[in-house]
Design a binder for these strands. Structure first.
Lengths: 204, 204, 204, 204
DNA sequence: TATGAATGAGTTTTCATTCAT
DNA sequence: AATGAATGAAAACTCATTCAT
């Protein structure tokens, strides 16, 4: 193993440690020394790899958020039906939480919902996701499966808002978080956003 | 005017000043001296009326949130149809933002979406709102206007999540916030949550 | 009862309240509001009667210490034998503690033993007591009942040091403080200072 | 020189600086910045090495007091006569003052005589000294050189009280503090405590 | 006299960041 | 790369004192 690889490993160690303490204590309440302790790394090394505590969170966020953007792109560009595309996106986010709840907690709590700090900093990236999801909605409207009288961007925001609220429920412990709950969540969210909660109009 | 009334006025002054600076800078970035300056009051007076900076925010939140809880109760106990009840609740929240955006920004950004700090502290009060809204959904299910296959609590969370996301859009400047936008928002949210974004199935 | 008398009563109330809180918490740890609360008097009234928190303690000390000076004078000028005079002084101090332990605790802990604060302020008054006691010792030397090779001032300091240490033992709870202990203390102190702890040399 | 040694040096620097400012201004009147300035060290370094200002004083006291306890033990366990043992103890304390008056001033003024703050905190350690000295007195009673009718613990307290009062005289500038005074003080104290101030009974 | 609201200087403590090794 | 000691700015909070009523 070469020196460069070790360095990469150390960065990882620090990022992973930071995720754990940020998830547990929140960004503001964690000291740089907490990150170093959790990562099992010397205090000063955090500053060797990162310019500041904020940059650590920035990287945590961007690393993950870019995967989300890719996932949305992939869904959008796929051959699936619009509703399935939304399902894919919802599934990706829900699985992200399912398999790394600490990371997603940090991203949601410390960034996307932190309008006064990191939310503002990363607003463009966050908005980017809304816009790409909106493109899926637009397509659905063009092919006639989604109503044309809803602004696609608003629909996108709402869709994302529902997903985040569900994750928030898990984060806060308001919802049960068993395997089956995760399994159902995707369809539940998509069903809710697409069909609403009204009972079906009598047909025929 | 009596001494007691002056004291009440001073509390108000401090609370109002705090809302303004919290909205502008965020809770963590505002110093107690900022509150005092904004409220045009001596530094120490903040501590005369409040035990700590946190207690100021606590009171700001609780004061407003209790109004929301009352509004939900009033809607729930009214003679309106379930969907109208949801509309009333959505309208109340949207109007709260419309007529005091700084206050609502503080409540959402610093409390309901701050899972690591005040969100946790006020979780019971927040959850209380979800539960009361869920009761409206339950009623709708009982009378058959809402689908029975959606958990009322999940539906309530989603409903609230959509509203908060819309407010977040305004807060971030992602949505236009003209009078007509506020006028439409209520029906838009309710329409979205109730009917979803699917185009109407062909009837007949 | 006239206005002047009420004023005197209020001063007393404040002084007495101050003694209780000073004894319990120490001078530094007691706030002016504690004094007011304990005295059952409005906050600002403390400042109506006293220039500052320090002046309250000054008066507490001086009021009592002047009694001690008078008692020493009375003993010194009496017809008693020198050893009896010392016994009278010791008895006065011990009884002062016996019948008002809080007051004496404050005087000792906050003034006579507080070399960096009030001890320095009241050094002349404290030293005055040492000098007057020394006069008793001098007289004893002149009439031949006390050894001439001990500096009277040093003897006086030692005598006072022993008494204060005994009071300190009570204050700290290191000594039992039953009635009989107080009864014995006077003779014990005088016996110790006069005869020492050596066993009697064999005579004859 | 290694890093560890430097760290130890810095602690020393801070402790020594603290002794000087505590002696000059008293614990309450010295700010942490005074300690840092006096120690010629950055502000934050005080907190790097000590949890709080109080812990600095705690360490100053305990470091020195443990030497005293050792000295008492050594005297008690020596082959000297009881009276000589007391002389050794008195000599140790007096020399402690003679060669480091600032340190002893801090210990006496801020700890052993501060019944409302550090005296209480360190009561066990202080009492430990009294008890060990009392063992010397007990031994003297057993071998018949000290009177049996004096409680050894009370005698110990008195002995210590006399020494402290003498040091207090020096601290306050009430006693001359030339070399000869220090030379004499030890015998003076022991003579006083052992033989008292009474003139010798006529023998023969 | 009496009240207690108002003032603001003063101090501890924290902790992100730097830097010498 | 790695370490952790050193730095010092920043902020919350306290509380003696003043003052308007």
């Amino acid at each position: 193993m070469m020196a460069g690889e070790i360095a990469i490993e150390r960065r990882r160690q620090i990022l992973d440690g930071a995720v754990r303490v940020f998830a547990r204590q929140g960004f503001h309440a964690t000291r740089v020394s907490d990150i170093a302790d959790q990562a099992d790394v010397a205090y000063g090394l955090v500053y060797h790899y990162f310019q500041s505590k904020e940059k650590v969170l920035d990287e945590i966020f961007t690393e993950r958020w870019s995967l989300l953007l890719e996932a949305i792109d992939a869904a959008r560009d796929s051959d699936l039906a619009p509703r399935e595309k939304l399902g894919t996106v919802a599934g990706f986010i829900i699985d992200s939480y399912r398999f790394d709840p600490e990371l997603m907690k940090v991203i949601i709590v410390e960034v996307t919902r932190a309008a006064n700090s990191f939310g503002r900093t990363h607003l463009d990236e966050i908005d980017d996701a809304y816009r790409r999801i909106a493109e899926i909605v637009s397509e659905g409207q063009e092919v006639g499966v989604f109503r044309a009288d809803v602004d696609p961007y608003v629909a996108s925001m709402s869709f994302y808002g529902v997903i985040e609220q569900v994750l928030t429920g898990w984060i806060f412990g308001l919802f049960p978080a068993a395997d089956e709950d995760f399994d159902n969540a995707r369809d539940l969210v998509v069903g809710l956003v697409c069909r609403g909660i009204d009972s079906e109009p009598e047909t025929g």
